[in-house]
Design a protein around this nucleic acid. Structure first.
Lengths: 193, 193
DNA sequence: CGAAAATTTGACATGACTCAACTGGAGTGG
DNA sequence: CCACTCCAGTTGAGTCATGTCAAATTTTCG
């Protein structure tokens, strides 16, 4: 197991040179994570970026009543981190949990800063990565303030075809912001059409 | 009127050097925009980044029923653009409208690409800018899927103290995703406490 | 000043949640 | 391989949050 998938991933942006790859090999750590294992817990500072080689993660908040609210999923070739906590170094309100047995590459904060400082390709690549994440998050806000739960569900299926047969409806419900019971009723409604 | 506010703005990040400032002076265009004037309309491609020197803007979508849904506000020293349309060069679904008589600096796409390509400080600065915008947008998604309208309203007041006495409740309602009538009832409820 | 927009109010409608119960499938330990 | 548990999914009844529509009033701005 090596960091090849990450190197490939960057070929979609500004591909890395040999020197950068060398540094990445030195600094990146590969880690196996079991299903249900947490890689970030509420109260901890998020001190690394995580790149998913294999498996599936969710990032969520637990409210005062103990209910989970899914903010993001990440599968193969996706990044996941609580950027707010990562940059402010304040305790996170979020959990990141493996939904399957997974393999990830992690980059610590000091390593990220090293790469940003020394190889401006990283500034470029992460600028573009974050821009894309921002655009998607903005789409989601727009949907939340302007669409019904049924529309949000149908949009989720359309926009995340790789996820909907891989995770439970409970997880999807939590992501689109409805209760599992209500999602069940929505699904019934849709099939009866 | 000159681009000084923008140069000052970048001092919060990696400050620009003389050469970069020179290029910026050559390429940036300063523009006055009257209240209610649109700087982006649905169907148009968003072809510039806009930096607000003075005034206030909203970016919103109009749904099939003609209702507006506010996605973002921008005041002094803020940026506004439909990044999705900007990078994909596809027609935007959004409007950007001045809520007051305003003054802005605009950077065309080709100029942005010029700066990104030639001065990597811009990659850095916009990476950080977009990261912060992303973190805020993520907070908002989390709130939309986990809080009541009253909580979202109170949070808006807390997080945007410079806006709430500057824009109407209709605009706030549209931003937090409720009808103006319902927001009025929320406000009544709050004052009666 | 006058028109347009913002705000408030009330009656009513509907979307979405809560709670409790039931079913069925997947994983686990004996 | 079976018995068991746990979790996902479904259903229904009742409730609460929020939307709709219409009207009256106030404020803002040209």
């Amino acid at each position: 197991m090596n960091i090849q998938p990450l190197i490939e991933h960057f070929k979609n942006y500004l591909p890395l040179g040999d020197e950068e790859i060398g540094e990445l090999e030195k600094r990146a750590s590969i880690r196996k994570v079991k299903r249900r294992q947490l890689i970030l817990s509420e109260g901890d500072v998020c001190n690394c970026y995580t790149f998913v080689i294999e498996g599936c993660f969710k990032m969520y908040k637990v409210d005062e009543e103990g209910k989970e609210h899914n903010l993001q999923f990440a599968i193969e070739n996706g990044w996941i981190a609580d950027l707010g906590s990562f940059y402010s170094e304040k305790p996170s309100e979020l959990y990141i949990e493996a939904m399957e047995n997974s393999v990830v590459i992690q980059l610590k904060k000091e390593d990220m800063l090293f790469f940003f400082t020394n190889y401006h390709k990283f500034d470029r690549n992460f600028r573009v990565l974050v821009e894309n994440a921002f655009i998607e998050m903005q789409r989601r806000v727009l949907q939340n303030i302007s669409s019904t739960a049924e529309e949000r569900y149908l949009d989720f299926l359309e926009k995340h075809p790789k996820l909907f047969n891989r995770i439970s409806n409970v997880q999807i419900a939590s992501y689109i912001g409805v209760t599992p019971e209500f999602l069940s009723k929505i699904r019934k409604e849709i099939t009866s059409k």
